[in-house]
Computed example of a mutant assay.
Amino acid sequence: MPVSSRKEPDSGASPDVDRTQVMSGNVFKDALDSLRWTYRKHRDKPRERQIAKAEPPALNPEFRFQGREVTVSLTSYGTRVNTASIAIKSLMMQTVAPTRIVLYLDDSLVRADLPADLLELESKGLVISAGHEDFLSHKKYRFAMEDYPDSLLILADDDLVYEPDTVESLLKAHAEYPSAVIGRRAHRVKFDSSGQLLPYTEWDLQWSELCPTPRMSPMVTTGAGSLYPPELFPALLDDFPLSQTLAPTADDIWLKVQEVRHGIPSVVLSGVRAMPAEILGTNRVSLYHVNGPRGNDEAMGRLLDHYHLDSTCFDDATVDADPHEGSKEPPRGTEL
């Protein structure tokens, strides 16, 4: 039985808002965004259909990467759960598949009403963890960091079709930079010459300059695929209750500020498709406006004020130019 609709803003979409309500105001930029969005609909639909009909291989619970389990975590809500199986299948059908995939749900979703195609994936290694407190989009990392404290954690969204190399690419970068957050997509936080935070619409969106080396200024967008080593979990969960008052619908911004507070750099991959294909009908309203530019500006402003952070905290010069701390060993198969 399909699950009924429920409004919940998250960092990846504004499900009940029309696309035109979050445009930047730049006529040419918005027209180009609209054309790109229309093009992607037609380009990506065949692969979405293929994934939806596919029978994914079962995950291997014994898989380890450099001795660690690899957990992919995501959350869902409302009608979005009816198509979440497509995103999850694409994460199972990877060149290097994770140890497990966990879907975290709050108590507004009753297991008996979850779609059959989603429940069937439990036999393939999907873990459905329901009945959690509703931390909105923060659910996708909050509980996984507690449940799997020694696992590499990859975050994903429920409304995207992931490229087959997503997990492999993140693991390869982690092997080279084991103390950094790794992302396939990021926006560069920007300040003006006087040190004032610029509006979100003036950040460098989908920034790749000077990447992939560790930097402080990129804000990894978690839904596009991002990796967090377990050594970072305590820092990222520090002050978590404040996330619900300072940035309740802006998990990417909350995580970025925690990273900056604790001196954790980000690495953004190059040579990959940064933004996965949208599952049609899930209402991802714009690539340019994660959570809406106004909401991001307000959340970032509150966080910078609360933690007394300034532009110097986001200075890339504070990170060593080439801190190769790890091995360049590529991802391997099962390690027992």
Rank of each mutant, 00 (worst) to 15 (best):
S11E: 04
N26M: 08
A31G: 04
H42F: 15
K45A: 15
I51L: 10
A58E: 11
N60F: 10
E62H: 14
V72T: 03
V72M: 03
V72H: 03
S76Y: 07
Y77W: 15
N82M: 05
N82P: 02
K89Q: 08
S90D: 05
A97R: 08
T99G: 07
D106E: 03
D107Y: 00
D113H: 12
E120F: 02
L121T: 01
L126P: 03
V127E: 09
G131T: 02
E133Y: 08
K140N: 03
M145D: 04
L153F: 07
A156H: 02
D158L: 02
D159W: 03
D159I: 00
T166Q: 05
L170M: 09
H174I: 01
Y177P: 05
S179K: 14
A180T: 08
R188K: 13
E202R: 13
W203K: 09
C211Q: 15
L232N: 08
L242A: 11
T245V: 14
K256C: 06
P265R: 07
S266W: 01
V268W: 06
S270V: 14
G271M: 06
V272Q: 05
R273A: 07
E278W: 12
T282E: 15
R284A: 11
E298W: 00
L304C: 04
L304W: 03
H308G: 07
T312N: 12
F314S: 09
D320H: 11
H324N: 04
E325W: 12
S327L: 11
P330C: 06
